[in-house]
């Protein structure tokens, strides 16, 4: 008889492993990527190609240089690259986006010890960095489909500065200005459905995040309808859905406890709305998630599950 395998229990495993999860996220992004290709054409294509290859290449080189096992096969760098492309304006110069990809992997992920050890969402951290380094390029928006070089404004920008509300139909399908992947609510909702159906993400964070935004905007809109936009607008416009579905749910940078995930999502919603309604910027999704990333270890500590058999009446 051949040698028998000895290992500790359990001896069966769920088929859901890390590469499966990452590939699942990529599949869930297909509608958003398709929408971006439709609305922003070759610019979207080149941008995605640039950031994905920057991320994968950087991860490969760093892991080789540090003498670590190369783990680009887990597809996490591809996910980071894809997400980075989707949060950038279509007109950003490609060298900048390449730089962003290098930044995302180097200072967003590998410096902390690689996948799972990072504190901040790498794609959003890179976007925050680009925003600080190249503010003009990061706030120059292109008209969809026409791709005219004449700059346009995002629906949130128009609402904040010109009090113009973009029609919901355009927001739903994505025929508006904005970052590559944030414009089409429909595409993002399809992605959400996929992620939930295949149990790749937990429902708590997106529900808490979007729920808080709806509640907050409903209250403010009821108080001052002329000044504050209605809830549906806040849900469909800007990066809320992209952030709530794909960014805030990043496992490494969100809490591990169930209660913690509710708090995390609600915190993201509160900060987003505070920035949107009273901040100097029209959009607050990125900063809200990054700020909540920073307090995630604290949330984990204060939301430990109740000990089994203790404090449970009777």
């Amino acid at each position: 008889m051949k040698k028998l395998t000895i290992s500790t229990s359990p001896h069966v495993f769920s088929s859901l492993d890390i590469p499966y999860m990452m590939k699942g996220v990529i599949k869930a992004l297909i509608p958003a990527v398709a929408a971006s290709l439709y609305f922003f054409r070759w610019r979207a294509f080149l941008l995605i190609l640039t950031t994905v290859s920057a991320c994968v290449l950087t991860e490969y080189l760093l892991q080789r240089l540090r003498g670590r096992q190369v783990r680009i096969g887990d597809f996490s760098a591809v996910v980071t690259g894809l997400l980075l492309a989707l949060v950038l304006p279509p007109s950003i110069p490609l060298w900048m986006s390449f730089f962003g990809g290098v930044f995302a992997i180097t200072l967003g992920k590998e410096i902390f010890g690689g996948l799972g050890h990072n504190i901040f969402n790498p794609a959003l951290l890179a976007r925050a960095f680009l925003m600080a380094a190249f503010p003009v390029a990061l706030t120059t928006w292109t008209n969809p489909v026409a791709l005219d070089t004449v700059t346009t404004a995002t629906p949130l920008g128009m609402a904040q500065f010109d009090h113009v509300i973009t029609p919901y139909v355009s927001l739903f399908f994505g025929n508006v200005g904005g970052s590559l992947g944030e414009t089409s609510a429909l595409a993002l909702l399809l992605g959400l459905g996929y992620l939930l159906y295949y149990k790749i993400i937990d429902y708590r964070i997106p529900v808490a995040y979007v729920g808080t935004v709806i509640f907050f905007s409903a209250v403010t809109h009821a108080i001052a309808p002329g000044r504050f936009s209605p809830p549906l607008f806040h849900v469909l416009a800007g990066g809320l859905l992209l952030g709530a579905v794909f960014m805030a749910t990043d496992p490494a940078t969100s809490p591990v406890t169930g209660l913690g995930r509710w708090i995390f999502g609600a915190g993201c919603g509160l900060i987003t709305m505070t920035i949107r309604l009273w901040g100097g910027l029209p959009e607050g999704v990125m900063y809200s998630i990054l700020l909540m990333n920073a307090v995630t270890p604290l949330i984990n500590r204060i939301t430990r599950p109740r000990r089994f058999g203790v404090g449970h009446g009777r």
Partner: peptide
Amino acid sequence: RQCIKCARCVDVCPVNL
């Protein structure tokens, strides 16, 4: 592989660990 803190272990633990 490395832990990605996905918290599946937390969600499934029947004794709240």
